[in-house]
Design a protein around this nucleic acid. Sequence first.
DNA 1: TATCTAGTTATAATCATTACAAATTTGGAA
DNA 2: TTCCAAATTTGTAATGATTATAACTAGATA
Lengths: 144, 144
Amino acid sequence: MSTLEDLTKSLKQAGLRLTPQRLAICKLLVETDSHPTAAMIYESIRAQYPSLSLTTVYNTLETLADLGVINVLGHSGDNTVHYDANITPHVHLACIACHKIIDVPSLHVAFLNDDISAVSGYKLLGARLIYYGLCPSCQKRNYQ
Amino acid sequence: MSTLEDLTKSLKQAGLRLTPQRLAICKLLVETDSHPTAAMIYESIRAQYPSLSLTTVYNTLETLADLGVINVLGHSGDNTVHYDANITPHVHLACIACHKIIDVPSLHVAFLNDDISAVSGYKLLGARLIYYGLCPSCQKRNYQ
DNA sequence: TATCTAGTTATAATCATTACAAATTTGGAA
DNA sequence: TTCCAAATTTGTAATGATTATAACTAGATA
Ligand SMILES: [Mn+2]
Ligand SMILES: [Mn+2]
Ligand SMILES: [Zn+2]
Ligand SMILES: [Zn+2]
């Protein structure tokens, strides 16, 4: 799990400024475990920075992803990209009904990593390990 | 790996017709190993069915995905959804430069599945296991 | 044949994301 | 401190994949 220092250091080391907007976005990313989208981040921070623009959120997320300190998850059935400050490969569980994404621990991820690294010939930059289905509460709701 | 019969049977069992368009899309899906997008499928089949519409491709893919006989992969950095007729959970390697997606065999996927199934409490419907990075030829190209 | 319906098609609408240019802020030079 | 160039942010417009809509077609049924 990246810390706030990880993110801010990597910005500085890349010669980029730590603006209030970037800092707020970084803070939110490391403090949440909800795998937010750009729009969610924008809505959360708008209260503190009323002048914040959605473009800045997208730009900052792209910058952090390019630096390799956050992970870009794909869609969870909702046509929006989710982000994760936890860049150690780990498994996600996405509900196709309510679109929540949670982490699932599994020891086998580490073995999987070793396999892929050894076999692929690719220069690996990250992973998106996503199982999807219906979360317990959405299962109930569907049967009512 | 789903066969053509798997796809056509599941369409019939759901009371849906096996139209020429649907058949052509199913054939392409089971014959390719390239994880095509809706647009790629449309372009491939247009020669045989000049009247084919992109909407039909999208509709058919959604139908097959809802039936659970094809898998919806996320983006590979190209902002387009990729599809896979191989619904047994397996690992993908996506190149962020040329956007090709290949399969990678690993025994640990089976163990991972067992873990997730046992622990989650979710009703699991599928998985997207994607590592991304630079493929060997794009690595060369970047260093020239 | 006449009718009904699932499916297809063409077209338009949606909306997340990206591109662009003007305005603002910043850190450093003078 | 004051000024300046560069970096960054912002508001707005453009893009493009996907989805919605409604007219049309084909194929089954009676
Ligand atoms: Mn996570
Ligand atoms: Mn595959
Ligand atoms: Zn749910
Ligand atoms: Zn490549």
